[in-house]
Computed example of a mutant assay.
Amino acid sequence: MPPEMVGWSRHGWVRLGEGWAGCLRSPLAEAEREEVADWCRAGRPLVIARGRTGDGAGELRLGLATPDKRRIGLHVAADAVAEHWRPLPLAEAVETAPEAWRAMLAELVLRALALGVRPAVYGSLAWQHRTELGYVRPDSDIDLLFAPRERWQLDGLLDLLTAACDGTPRLDGEILLPDGAAVAWRELAGRPARLLVKGPAEVSLRDLPSVLTLFDREDAA
Rank of each mutant, 00 (worst) to 15 (best):
residue 135 Y to G: 00
residue 102 R to E: 05
residue 10 R to D: 00
residue 70 R to W: 02
residue 201 A to H: 13
residue 81 V to P: 07
residue 129 H to R: 14
residue 190 G to W: 01
residue 104 M to Q: 14
residue 190 G to S: 11
residue 39 W to T: 04
residue 185 W to N: 03
residue 183 V to L: 12
residue 22 G to H: 09
residue 32 E to M: 11
residue 188 L to V: 04
residue 68 D to H: 12
residue 92 E to V: 10
residue 72 I to D: 01
residue 27 P to Y: 07
residue 87 P to F: 05
residue 173 G to R: 02
residue 130 R to Q: 13
residue 102 R to I: 04
residue 175 I to H: 08
residue 150 E to T: 14
residue 205 L to F: 06
residue 195 L to W: 11
residue 206 R to F: 01
residue 181 A to W: 07
residue 139 D to L: 06
residue 206 R to G: 01
residue 188 L to S: 05
residue 136 V to D: 00
residue 188 L to R: 06
residue 207 D to M: 12
residue 204 S to E: 12
residue 139 D to S: 11
residue 139 D to H: 07
residue 217 R to F: 08
residue 26 S to I: 01
residue 39 W to A: 07
residue 142 I to A: 08
residue 174 E to F: 01
residue 78 A to G: 15
residue 220 A to Q: 13
residue 101 W to A: 02
residue 194 R to S: 13
residue 43 G to L: 11
residue 13 W to F: 09
residue 200 P to S: 10
residue 18 E to L: 07
residue 76 V to I: 08
residue 1 M to A: 13
residue 32 E to G: 13
residue 100 A to Y: 03
residue 179 D to T: 04
residue 91 A to R: 15
residue 6 V to T: 13
residue 162 T to C: 06
residue 137 R to Q: 06
residue 193 A to G: 14
residue 112 A to H: 01
residue 173 G to N: 04
residue 151 R to V: 06
residue 173 G to M: 03
residue 142 I to F: 02
residue 22 G to A: 13
residue 85 W to M: 10
residue 129 H to D: 09
residue 202 E to N: 08
residue 97 A to N: 03
residue 150 E to W: 09
residue 122 Y to R: 10
residue 163 A to I: 08
residue 134 G to V: 11
residue 95 E to L: 08
residue 160 L to T: 00
residue 37 A to S: 14
residue 199 G to M: 03
residue 80 A to L: 08
residue 148 P to E: 05
residue 102 R to K: 12
residue 198 K to D: 00
residue 24 L to E: 01
residue 6 V to P: 00
residue 122 Y to D: 02
residue 19 G to R: 15
residue 35 E to N: 11
residue 82 A to E: 15
residue 189 A to T: 04
residue 45 P to F: 05
residue 122 Y to V: 06
residue 97 A to K: 04
residue 92 E to Y: 12
residue 166 D to Y: 10
residue 85 W to R: 15
residue 44 R to D: 06
residue 194 R to W: 05
residue 193 A to I: 09
residue 162 T to D: 06
residue 155 D to S: 07
residue 89 P to T: 04
residue 11 H to I: 00
residue 97 A to Q: 04
residue 99 E to D: 15
residue 133 L to I: 04
residue 213 T to K: 14
